[in-house]
Design a protein around this nucleic acid. Structure first.
Lengths: 314, 314
DNA sequence: CCAATAGTGTCTATTAGACACTATACT
DNA sequence: AGTATAGTGTCTAATAGACACTATTGG
C-alpha cells in the first residue's frame, strides 16, 4: 500500500479529499462587512421582522468560478474537522462563532473520471451579537486564530485539486486590527441568497431546517444574543428563525417553564416603554429547576478539539 | 500537488483516509448467525420484552486485534458513502438492510504521528423481519451485491493502513447459496455488548439515541417488521426500542391518528386469542389522511446511490 | 368455562394557543 | 394623554396517559 506518483488513472484509486463547509448564521452582518443583500440589517434591537444572515465566499477559480460558496476548505493533517470549520470561518468572518455543530457529510461520486473524490463534511454555526461585536483580530480566545488568512476565497480554491498541501503560509497580508473588508466575502440575507456553487444551496436549506427544529426543542436561540437579554429579544430571535410571529404571553410562559433562563434582577434601560427584565442562560452544570432535556446529543460540542476524546477514530 | 512515494513524514500531510462504519439493528439475529449474546432471540412474534440485536465483526489485526468492531471499511473511489455502508453490511450480514441513514462523522486527529488521518462517517441501519428472512445471496435487489466478500473481518483490516487500494478481488470464496456463517461475524444484544474497538461504543450509544428519538416523532418502527403487521407487533417494536411497555389502547389511537397506517382488511390467523387486524405502512406518495410530517429531513434516504443528485460535491 | 389479546369508551392532567387585561416606561 | 412594550390571568382545544370495559379467538 504505497502511494506512487499519481497519474490520472491512479488518482481514481486514491482516497478522497476531505473538506469542510460551514453555514454560519447571524441576526445581522458584522459592522464593516460587505453586504450582498439589500434588506434591512438592523438586527434584533431595532427594526421589526429580523432576518438571518449568512457569510459567503466568492470562488476565484473553476469550477463555479465567480459564484458564491460557503466558507470552507480542506482539512489539514493535524486538525479535527471542527478545527477546519473554525479556521475557515475565521478566515471569512475574522471572528470565531459562538456555536458550532456538525450537520451532515456529503460523499457523492464525481462525474468526472479525472477529478479526485471529494468528501465534504458540512457544519453549521451561530454568530451572536456578542461574537460579532468583538473587534477583529484581537478577538476572543479562538482555537483557530493562528495563520493570517490569505483571502478566504483563495483558501477554498485549494480544496478541489488536492487537499492538505497548501504552502502553510506565514506570509500573506498578516491582518492588522481593522483591516479592510475582503471583497470576496459578503453577507447575504437567508431569504435572498445568490446562486451558489456546488450543492451548497441544499446544504444551506438543510442547515436552516436543522436550526429551526433545534430552536423548537432545544435552547440555542439565546446564542444569537449577548450574555444577558430580554424575553422580547429572545422572542424576536425565535420569530426570525421560525419566520412567523409568536404570542408574547405564551412565549414568556413556555420559555420560563423550560428552566433554562435565570433572572439577573437587572432591567433594561432607556426604552420608550416599560423596561424589561434581563435574563441570562443557565449554564448546564448549574443547579436549579431543570427539565430532563431531550433530543439526541451528538458526541461533539462547540468546544474546540473535541471531535472525540481518546482512542483512534475509525 | 503530486503524490510521491509516502515516507512516514510525508504521510502526515496526505489527505485523510475515509471509512464508513455502520450500526445495524434488528429485532432478532438472522437464522444461522453466530450469537455473541445469550439472551433470548425470539424476536417480536413470541417471547415478551424483545431486545435489539447488532452485528459485529472481529478484528484480526492491530490495532484492537481480537476486539469486536462495527461493520465497515474504506470507501472506494467509485462508490458513495451510502454504497460503502451497504457493501460492508452486505459483507457482514449477507443481506441488504431495509433502512439506512447517516449518523455522524468522526474526524479526530490520531495520536500516533505515523498513522494516517482517518475520517469515519458513521451510518445506522435497520434489518426488518422481512429483510432477514430473505435467503442469503439470492437476496433482494441490492446495490452492493457485487463482489464476493472475503470475510468481513479481513475487509475492515484494510482500512487503517491505507484506504481504497484493496486488490479489488474477484477471487476469494465466492459465496454459494447457504454458505457457512463467518466466524468473525456475530450478533450481540444491544444490552450485552462486548468491549468494542476504536470509539465504536460511543457510536453505538449515539445510534441508539437516534433510533429512540426517531421512533418518537417519525414512523420507522414498522421497518423492523414485514410488509404487513398487527398493531400489537408494532407496539412490541416500540417497546423494544423505548425499553419500556406502552399502553395498548393509547398506542393504537396515536398510531392510527398519525395516518401512516393502512388497514389491509386482512386478519391474523392461528392465534390463541382474538385475531388482530393487519396493517401496512402507507407509502409517502399515497393519498389519504396524512399529517404534515415533521423533523428535519436529511438530503439522503435509503435509496442507494443518492448521496446527492448532481453537481460535484464540495 | 378460562386465558389472552384485540379493540372501544371515557376520565384526567398537561399543554399550546388565543386573547383580554393591567403595569410602567418615554414623549 | 398617548403609545409601546412588559407582564398576568384565564379560557379553550388538543393531546397523552390511566384505566375500565367489551369482543373474539383457541384450549
Amino acid at each position: 500500500m504505497q502511494y506512487e506518483s499519481a497519474s490520472v488513472s491512479e488518482r481514481r484509486t486514491m482516497p478522497p479529499a476531505v473538506a469542510v463547509s460551514t453555514v454560519a448564521f447571524a441576526l445581522r452582518p458584522p459592522l464593516g462587512a460587505v453586504l450582498g443583500s439589500t434588506a434591512g440589517a438592523e438586527g434584533v434591537g431595532s427594526g421589526r421582522a429580523p432576518t438571518l444572515w449568512i457569510p459567503l465566499v466568492r470562488r476565484t477559480r473553476a469550477p463555479f468560478q465567480g459564484l458564491w460558496a460557503l466558507p470552507g476548505g480542506p482539512t489539514r493533517w493535524n486538525e479535527t474537522l471542527a478545527d477546519t470549520a473554525l479556521r475557515s470561518l475565521h478566515a471569512a468572518v475574522l471572528r470565531p462563532p459562538g456555536y458550532l455543530e456538525q450537520l451532515y457529510s456529503f460523499g457523492g461520486v464525481e462525474r468526472s473520471a479525472e477529478a479526485q473524490r471529494l468528501v465534504t463534511i458540512a457544519y453549521w454555526a451561530l454568530y451572536g451579537e456578542h461574537d460579532l461585536a468583538a473587534s477583529p483580530s484581537l478577538a476572543a480566545p479562538s482555537p483557530a486564530d493562528d495563520d493570517g488568512a490569505p483571502s478566504a476565497a483563495a483558501r477554498w480554491d485549494d480544496a478541489a485539486p488536492a487537499a492538505g498541501l497548501e504552502p502553510d503560509p506565514a506570509d500573506a497580508d498578516e491582518a492588522g486590527d481593522t483591516e479592510p473588508a475582503d471583497p470576496n466575502v459578503a453577507w447575504f440575507s437567508a431569504d435572498d441568497l445568490p446562486a451558489l456553487a456546488f450543492d451548497h444551496a441544499e446544504i444551506v436549506a438543510y442547515a436552516l431546517e436543522r436550526l429551526r427544529s433545534k430552536t423548537e426543542y432545544s435552547a440555542i436561540a439565546h446564542r444569537f444574543l449577548g450574555p444577558v437579554f430580554t424575553l422580547g429579544q429572545l422572542r424576536a430571535v425565535h420569530e426570525a428563525v421560525r419566520g412567523e410571529p409568536a404570542d408574547p404571553a405564551n412565549f414568556r410562559r413556555q420559555e420560563l417553564a423550560r428552566g433554562t433562563l435565570v433572572d439577573t434582577g437587572e432591567f433594561e434601560t432607556g426604552t420608550p416603554h416599560r423596561p424589561a427584565r434581563l435574563y441570562r442562560f443557565r449554564d448546564p452544570h448549574e443547579p436549579g429547576p431543570r427539565r430532563p432535556a431531550s433530543g439526541p446529543t451528538p458526541p461533539q460540542r462547540t468546544a474546540p478539539n473535541s471531535e472525540l476524546p481518546k482512542k483512534g477514530t475509525s
